[in-house]
């Protein structure tokens, strides 16, 4: 890697670009004013208010349920689909169909599902959002997993089949382990997209439930307050901690394994 030092420039540029607004956002969470975008002075009051806001708390819980649920659905179905498309068919139409939800305008999917749920008289709730988010998340998982499958070395899988293993056994013992990085990337993407999705969630959720994005968009009429920044700051802190702890754990696990 020594030779490609110049690659470090765009690498670090990417992270600076991604985190510059995050720094601003965290600073604004300490704003003493009401606005999420004009800084007036230092205060911790929004953290206090956040602790007392039931609606935001419910919103966070609902959002996490939806994101986790749809990520599970999407990761399982999307991975299967990716393997099926790469190994068991040559149809370009099916390829296109599998990618379609990832590229369809969210509003169109939202209205389609709203009309469809109405037709089959489905009572809306959180699960109807999970199903809806599953649609586009699955497409992202399938596509990311596909990039690992296409052109991959299939000799192991063939060997497994020649030795008499069925498709399911081959998949579990041979294909799946090779796919893990792609599945992780896909699942991360699915979870991330669901967390912040507004349009589809709004149209497919029951009237008395709200995900966090719905709560926040609805706040616009009276101004989005730094409470949301405070929430974001806490969320980031928790996520960072989880990532670092997770990384420490793998480190310990690995060093033990090496011993």
């Amino acid at each position: 890697m020594r030779r490609s030092k110049w690659l470090h420039v765009p690498f670090w540029a990417t992270y600076v670009f991604l985190y510059a607004p995050i720094v601003v956002l965290v600073v604004m969470s300490f704003n003493s004013g009401r606005s999420a975008y004009t800084y007036e002075g230092f205060s911790l009051k929004w953290y206090g208010e956040l602790a007392q806001d039931e609606r935001i708390r419910d919103g966070v819980v609902n959002t996490l349920i939806v994101a986790a649920g749809s990520t599970v659905v999407a990761t399982v179905l999307g991975t299967l689909l990716a393997v099926g498309l790469a190994r068991y068919t040559r149809s370009k139409t099916l390829d296109a169909l599998a990618l379609m939800p990832a590229v369809l305008p969210d509003l169109v999917l939202a209205i389609g599902l709203l009309v469809f749920y109405g037709m089959i008289q489905l009572t809306l709730g959180l699960y109807s959002v999970i199903l809806a988010h599953g649609v586009f998340s699955m497409a992202f998982v399938a596509a990311v997993v596909r990039t690992r499958l296409s052109n991959a070395d299939t000799s192991l899988e063939e060997a497994s089949r020649d030795l008499g293993a069925g498709p399911v056994v081959t998949f579990m013992k041979v294909t799946l382990p090779q796919l893990t990085p792609g599945i992780i990337a896909g699942a991360l993407l699915a979870f991330t997209l669901s967390l912040d999705e507004f349009v589809i969630a709004f149209f497919t959720i029951g009237n008395n439930e709200q995900t966090l994005p719905i709560v926040i968009y609805s706040m616009i009429r009276f101004g989005v307050t730094p409470k949301i920044n405070a929430l974001a700051a806490i969320l980031l802190l928790v996520s960072f901690t989880a990532v670092i702890v997770g990384q420490r754990m793998t480190k310990i696990g690995e060093s033990r394994a090496e011993d």
């Binding site: 209205i111 709203l114 009309v115 749920y117 109405g118 037709m119 008289q121 489905l122 009572t123 809306l124 709004f202 149209f203 029951g206 009237n207 008395n208 709200q210 719905i214 709560v215 968009y217 609805s218 616009i220 009429r221």
Partner: peptide
């Protein structure tokens, strides 16, 4: 109490034909 962000999105939900409750 349910909430909506704009007239437009509320209208879409109310006119789409399903029983919104």
């Amino acid at each position: 109490i349910g909430i909506h962000d704009t007239n437009e999105t509320a209208m879409t939900k109310l006119t789409a034909g399903g029983d919104t409750g």
